[in-house]
Amino acid sequence: MKSFGFQKIVDRQIDLDKADLSLVQALARELTGWQRCIGCGSCSATCTAAGMGSFNPRKVQMLVRMGQWDQVAQEAVHCQLCGKCRLVCPRDVDTRQLMLEFKKLQTISRP
Protein backbone atom coordinates (compact mmCIF):
# COMPACT_ATOMS: atom_id res chain seq x y z
CA MET A 1 0.00 0.00 0.00
CA LYS A 2 1.26 3.42 -0.90
CA SER A 3 1.93 6.18 1.57
CA PHE A 4 1.10 9.74 0.65
CA GLY A 5 2.66 11.32 3.69
CA PHE A 6 -0.49 11.66 5.79
CA GLN A 7 -2.94 9.53 7.73
CA LYS A 8 -6.64 9.34 7.21
CA ILE A 9 -8.45 10.88 10.18
CA VAL A 10 -10.55 8.46 12.16
CA ASP A 11 -14.13 9.62 12.49
CA ARG A 12 -15.22 10.36 16.04
CA GLN A 13 -18.82 9.96 15.06
CA ILE A 14 -20.82 7.44 17.03
CA ASP A 15 -22.49 5.21 14.51
CA LEU A 16 -25.44 3.95 16.49
CA ASP A 17 -26.41 1.66 13.62
CA LYS A 18 -23.21 -0.25 14.19
CA ALA A 19 -22.85 0.12 17.95
CA ASP A 20 -23.36 -3.02 20.00
CA LEU A 21 -26.36 -2.19 22.11
CA SER A 22 -27.03 -5.77 23.18
CA LEU A 23 -25.05 -5.17 26.35
CA VAL A 24 -27.25 -2.19 27.07
CA GLN A 25 -30.21 -4.54 26.95
CA ALA A 26 -28.43 -7.01 29.20
CA LEU A 27 -27.59 -4.22 31.63
CA ALA A 28 -31.19 -3.11 31.60
CA ARG A 29 -32.16 -6.58 32.74
CA GLU A 30 -29.42 -7.02 35.31
CA LEU A 31 -28.91 -3.66 36.89
CA THR A 32 -31.83 -1.53 37.82
CA GLY A 33 -32.02 2.20 37.96
CA TRP A 34 -29.17 3.21 35.69
CA GLN A 35 -31.47 4.26 32.88
CA ARG A 36 -32.82 6.94 35.17
CA CYS A 37 -29.62 8.94 34.74
CA ILE A 38 -30.30 12.39 33.29
CA GLY A 39 -26.69 13.37 32.91
CA CYS A 40 -26.74 16.01 35.63
CA GLY A 41 -23.10 15.35 36.43
CA SER A 42 -23.30 15.42 40.20
CA CYS A 43 -21.49 12.09 40.29
CA SER A 44 -18.60 13.56 38.35
CA ALA A 45 -18.56 16.65 40.50
CA THR A 46 -18.20 14.69 43.72
CA CYS A 47 -16.07 11.86 42.34
CA THR A 48 -12.91 11.14 44.30
CA ALA A 49 -11.08 10.06 41.19
CA ALA A 50 -12.46 12.60 38.73
CA GLY A 51 -10.56 15.53 40.14
CA MET A 52 -7.25 13.88 39.39
CA GLY A 53 -7.58 13.03 35.77
CA SER A 54 -9.95 12.73 32.93
CA PHE A 55 -12.29 10.24 34.59
CA ASN A 56 -15.91 11.29 34.35
CA PRO A 57 -18.53 8.85 35.66
CA ARG A 58 -21.36 10.82 34.05
CA LYS A 59 -19.75 10.49 30.66
CA VAL A 60 -19.08 6.81 31.18
CA GLN A 61 -22.79 6.21 31.72
CA MET A 62 -23.55 8.13 28.58
CA LEU A 63 -21.01 6.15 26.60
CA VAL A 64 -22.74 3.01 27.78
CA ARG A 65 -25.98 4.18 26.25
CA MET A 66 -24.13 4.69 23.01
CA GLY A 67 -22.60 1.21 23.15
CA GLN A 68 -19.03 2.55 23.21
CA TRP A 69 -17.82 -0.35 25.29
CA ASP A 70 -14.12 -0.08 24.67
CA GLN A 71 -14.11 3.49 25.81
CA VAL A 72 -16.31 2.59 28.77
CA ALA A 73 -13.86 -0.06 29.88
CA GLN A 74 -10.90 2.24 29.45
CA GLU A 75 -12.56 4.93 31.51
CA ALA A 76 -14.04 2.76 34.25
CA VAL A 77 -10.65 1.52 35.42
CA HIS A 78 -10.05 4.90 37.01
CA CYS A 79 -13.00 4.54 39.38
CA GLN A 80 -11.92 3.91 42.96
CA LEU A 81 -15.31 2.43 43.89
CA CYS A 82 -15.67 4.76 46.86
CA GLY A 83 -19.41 5.13 46.31
CA LYS A 84 -19.67 8.85 46.97
CA CYS A 85 -21.49 9.18 43.66
CA ARG A 86 -24.35 7.11 45.08
CA LEU A 87 -24.99 9.65 47.77
CA VAL A 88 -25.32 12.64 45.49
CA CYS A 89 -27.27 11.10 42.61
CA PRO A 90 -30.68 12.76 42.44
CA ARG A 91 -32.04 9.84 40.42
CA ASP A 92 -30.86 7.25 42.92
CA VAL A 93 -28.56 5.50 40.48
CA ASP A 94 -25.99 3.18 41.99
CA THR A 95 -23.18 4.50 39.82
CA ARG A 96 -20.58 2.59 41.78
CA GLN A 97 -22.28 -0.68 40.98
CA LEU A 98 -22.20 0.22 37.30
CA MET A 99 -18.53 1.07 37.40
CA LEU A 100 -17.77 -2.24 39.05
CA GLU A 101 -19.52 -4.00 36.19
CA PHE A 102 -17.76 -1.84 33.63
CA LYS A 103 -14.38 -2.66 35.11
CA LYS A 104 -15.11 -6.23 34.17
CA LEU A 105 -15.63 -5.24 30.54
CA GLN A 106 -11.86 -5.15 30.20
CA THR A 107 -11.81 -8.90 30.23
CA ILE A 108 -14.82 -9.47 28.04
CA SER A 109 -13.75 -9.77 24.45
CA ARG A 110 -16.25 -8.49 21.97
CA PRO A 111 -16.41 -9.08 18.28
Binding site: T46, M52, Q80, K103
Partner: peptide, 30 residues
Protein backbone atom coordinates in the same frame (compact mmCIF):
# COMPACT_ATOMS: atom_id res chain seq x y z
CA UNK B 1 -10.10 -8.34 36.67
CA UNK B 2 -6.72 -6.71 36.25
CA UNK B 3 -6.01 -3.37 37.86
CA UNK B 4 -4.91 -1.07 35.09
CA UNK B 5 -4.88 2.41 36.46
CA UNK B 6 -2.70 3.47 39.34
CA UNK B 7 -4.35 6.04 41.57
CA UNK B 8 -3.18 9.60 41.07
CA UNK B 9 -2.67 11.58 44.20
CA UNK B 10 -0.86 14.67 45.31
CA UNK B 11 -0.94 15.28 49.07
CA UNK B 12 -0.74 18.80 50.39
CA UNK B 13 2.62 20.02 51.61
CA UNK B 14 3.11 20.29 55.34
CA UNK B 15 5.00 22.88 57.32
CA UNK B 16 5.57 21.05 60.62
CA UNK B 17 5.03 17.56 62.00
CA UNK B 18 1.48 17.45 63.44
CA UNK B 19 0.12 15.64 66.50
CA UNK B 20 -2.61 14.07 64.48
CA UNK B 21 -2.97 13.15 60.87
CA UNK B 22 -6.63 13.50 60.08
CA UNK B 23 -8.29 11.58 57.28
CA UNK B 24 -11.88 12.79 57.07
CA UNK B 25 -12.86 10.21 54.45
CA UNK B 26 -14.61 10.91 51.21
CA UNK B 27 -18.14 10.64 52.62
CA UNK B 28 -17.31 13.21 55.30
CA UNK B 29 -16.79 15.71 52.52
CA UNK B 30 -20.50 15.49 51.88
Amino acid sequence: IPVVAAPRYSPVEMKAIPDVVWFAGCMSHL
